[in-house]
Design a protein around this nucleic acid. Structure first.
Lengths: 161, 161
DNA sequence: TATTGTTATACTCTATAACTATA
DNA sequence: TATAGTTATAGAGTATAACAATA
């Protein structure tokens, strides 16, 4: 569709197929969901060569930024249930991207750390994620991108007390 | 945590547990995902009394705004695979919220429409969703909310040609 | 031949209960 | 008693192939 047609459709609340969005277009939650699906789609394609999914990339970044932390701490920070993080760590160890070390102070917990291979993959990931971010924000200028980040941060985290 | 502590944590890239977010805090995709999880959480709690999940509410809104459209059309507009929309329509019919009518022009397709009960439930939904939206945007003023909607719309839909 | 709705199926994500070893 | 990691499992959500009816 042309830019003019898109503008007309947006104004009338219709999409490409001629369907009316009804009130959906005015809902933050709906727009958020649609935007997120689009972003994940691009992320998945971008990171397929590295064999990393969004949650795995987040986990590697977090382990790298917080070496020695436990599985519970990393999982909690990512909003992943502890049982579901076990399989992810298993795969990281299988691929030699991260290691579980027995904690010296509490033998129940595992001190996590990236391997050299993990650090190397993460360096590649940082390059790829930069291109990915540029692509998804292609229709935003730098001011708009910063403002979007700020507003999302206001929406996302728990309220300060 | 106090507002001052939160501000300090945000500046240093740390969360409530003292973990560094690393580069995650600077990624649109990450902020988008976290914000969306929070929004869905509130939506789920808000709509539990109506027995509606986000995808179901979206479907009811879309059917109401586009009566007579086919399952393929509604599903495509929502980004749902056609096979997966069958079970949703089955439940709508079981709960007498929507009906499948044989199309007069193409006997393969179903013309969808809400029942009176469906319209009534949707009216309740509109009230609830308004309160929900107000809650999730509580820390945004009206200008900020409008700007967030605009920026998300730029992110979400396919590029105009 | 192509399309609509459907069935069957599989794969991923997510959530919970319960076990073990440590504390 | 409580906690960290783990196992097992169950429920959503999502994706594809193939079939019957119809175009």
């Amino acid at each position: 569709m042309t830019v003019a047609a898109a503008a007309r459709a947006a104004k009338s609340g219709e999409d490409a197929g001629g369907l009316s969005e009804g009130m959906l277009g005015g809902l933050l939650g709906y727009r958020l969901r649609r935007a997120q699906l689009k972003v994940f789609e691009d992320f998945l394609a971008s990171f397929a060569p590295l064999g990393l999914k969004p949650a795995q990339f987040s986990a590697l970044v977090l382990i790298a930024a917080n070496p020695g932390r436990s599985q519970r701490e990393i999982a909690a920070a990512l909003g992943i249930q502890r049982p579901n993080f076990v399989a992810m760590m298993d795969e990281f160890e299988r691929r030699a991207l991260a290691r579980r070390h027995r904690s010296q102070t509490d033998r129940r917990s595992h001190a996590l750390a990236l391997t050299e291979a993990g650090e190397a993959l993460l360096r590649q990931g940082r390059t790829i994620v930069a291109a990915h971010e540029a692509r998804i924000a292609a229709r935003l200028n730098e001011t708009e991108r910063a403002e979007l980040m700020r507003l999302l941060a206001l929406l996302g985290p728990a309220a300060a007390d």
